[in-house]
Nucleic acid binder design. Structure first.
Ligand code: SF4
Ligand code: SF4
Lengths: 155, 155
DNA sequence: CTAATCGATACCGAGTTGGTATTCAATACA
DNA sequence: TGTATTGAATACCAACTCGGTATCGATTAG
């Protein structure tokens, strides 16, 4: 658990490849071959990525997909959210999906905090950061100041 | 996805309660009633938590569970790892569980980095931090220096 | 007009997860 | 010594989610 699901994993891999050839275009067929991801799965993925405006599609011969923005401007959070929805560690940290224990649970108001924390990590790590050969450092300003997305929280 | 599974969620909730009454002991029965988690589920959880030495058990009348260390010394990573294994965003970031694409995948050596990142967040957030009413700030030294758990990685 | 390519929908099998039941072992206390 | 209380261990199961497949329709370069 606390994994990201193969779809998202594959999706990010695809985005990575699209980034490497930018601004060229790649067809689903090529992508499947390039990434060794089964073609039908690529289909499903590209639809999601296109809906989230991370890639732009072109139909017909010479068509294919192109990265919508620069690899630096696409975060892992963007990709993951596009494919499997906004990350939410617990039910009470999610928009949809209610927890029946929420009423009695003393932690119900506390989880969104940590959730936001890991969200930030994902948001501040770009495709570029992931793909580059160098050491992957996250911008310093991360988490310096106390971070409390929830007001006093005592409902 | 990118959620933590109810078991782990419940487990942490239980640990939280154990922390609040420390150094007192609580029986499974009491815990179930206190947290509204179904008793059989509590059973399964306590075994895992005990195996990981996060709690110590005492049998017989007046028996029950007691937190092994102080709430400050138990991290979310500890709890999650005890219940659902070490968090691993992708297959290639996990000890066990191989990815058949690992051979061709350009990102295979890069994921452990981000994985370590979120791991750190979880490690540096203690039960105390989660339960306390204040704003939850993570210790500053997080992520300051470049972090690259993988050597050049070019196999 | 035709071939290449994306778009949408519907479906499915397998694995995982969360939850349950039952039986045995240890210990405080009378 | 005996008994009630509590944890330990095992086996089991139903439901859901996930990853993957198949099929057909829409668009566009040449
Ligand atoms: S309310 Fe409590 S139990 Fe329900 S999801 Fe949030 S933390 Fe977990
Ligand atoms: S190897 Fe590539 S595809 Fe396999 S898990 Fe790691 S990143 Fe995902």
């Amino acid at each position: 658990m606390l994994k990201v699901g193969r779809l998202a994993d594959y999706g990010i891999l695809i985005l990575h490849h699209l980034g490497r050839v930018r601004p060229a275009r790649l067809s689903m067929d090529t992508l499947a071959e390039l990434t060794h991801v089964p073609l039908p799965t690529v289909r499903k993925l590209m639809r999601l990525l296109a809906e989230a405006d991370l890639v732009v599609s072109k139909r017909g011969p010479l068509g294919g997909y192109e990265l919508a923005r620069s690899p630096q401007q696409i975060s892992l959070a963007d990709a993951i959210t596009a494919i499997e929805g906004r990350p939410a560690l617990t039910a009470c940290a999610s928009d949809r999906g209610h927890c029946e224990l929420a009423g009695h649970c003393e932690l119900a108001g506390r989880w969104p905090g940590v959730n936001a924390l890991i969200l930030q990590v994902l948001e501040r790590t770009s495709l570029q950061d992931l793909g580059a050969g160098g050491s992957l450092h996250v911008p310093p300003p991360l988490l310096r100041e106390p971070l409390c997305p929830e007001p006093p929280g005592r409902k």
